[in-house]
Design a protein around this nucleic acid. Sequence first.
DNA 1: GCTTCGAACTTTAGCTTTGAAGTCTTCACA
DNA 2: TGTGAAGACTTCAAAGCTAAAGTTCGAAGC
Lengths: 182, 182
Amino acid sequence: MADTPGVTEPTLEEQIAAYQREFQDLDPQVEKIVSALSRLNRRMNVAYGRQTAALGISNADWEVLKALVLSGAPYRMGPSDLAKRLGLTPAAMTHRIDRMVTEGLVTRERDEANRVRVIVELTTDGREKWLEAMRLATVFEEDLLQDLSADERTALGEVLTRLLRRVEHAQPDAGGRLADLE
Amino acid sequence: MADTPGVTEPTLEEQIAAYQREFQDLDPQVEKIVSALSRLNRRMNVAYGRQTAALGISNADWEVLKALVLSGAPYRMGPSDLAKRLGLTPAAMTHRIDRMVTEGLVTRERDEANRVRVIVELTTDGREKWLEAMRLATVFEEDLLQDLSADERTALGEVLTRLLRRVEHAQPDAGGRLADLE
DNA sequence: GCTTCGAACTTTAGCTTTGAAGTCTTCACA
DNA sequence: TGTGAAGACTTCAAAGCTAAAGTTCGAAGC
């Protein structure tokens, strides 16, 4: 499925108009930012998914490769650290590693120093795949941002990290309020 | 699970440094924007998830309610339109509607005019839930953006919609290149 | 040294989603 | 009419995830 050109998603403007019609206390400026963020992210994920699929790996595989590479040489992590890093349960991690071992992207071995632990290690093939995926991703990202000047990029990066800090350091309660930052 | 304060996710800066270490041809400015976008979105979804959970509905339910409300009165849609709108397969939609019917959020009835079709209609209870969720969401969103001036908000909205247009009108091929716009 | 607790991973059962096959209804056309 | 094709939804089997129960190993206390 994925692409269904049949039913056209409403444009951002149409969607905001619909929101205002159904919910009067809406700040259209805020909604525009939030909706655009969400849509942009969805589209980007579709793009990444296509790229990794073209390399013969799943998006799930890609996340694991990324975590291993970013951990630095010798590219080893335990399943539970990987699971926490990716936001998965240990059970899901077990299955995912199973798959990736048979795909030859990682190896799994028991830690002989502490036989409770398991070591997942990137194979050279897995590292190659990650590099290829990165090359594709950077092409896409550069293309995406090509209309933005250097100043605009700086400003955008700055604003986004500001928002990120706000939401990271103070996760909202169920009511939605963010605790004040220190 | 979800929150696992144990293993600390690297900060954005640490992550970008790791990327540069492992992949030399990386534009840190681009990576900063892309990573911040992705993280911000993840955090926001966690926040929305908590809010809808506090109302006793799932994030999946919330998406369906949103689609129905935004379709406008009388808040009716067919399962396949809903499926396309949400990016699900018809099969998944069938199950999701099953659940929501038993939860009293929507009703399902056969279209008497064309007995192949099914009509999913929002209940007043479903509409109430959506309104409550919106109220919570707007509180969170306003809080999130509170440090941004009106000018910054305008600028951010403008830049994001520009990026969105770029990626919407020209979905990338598997290689990652975006076709040139019209 | 034995026992018990705790940590790290795996297994099991249940849920949600997908892809493919199946059912029912309508529409076109002979 | 009656038949075939297409559309809209549902059912079924398989994959991936979660939560919870199991296993295995190491470490601390007696």
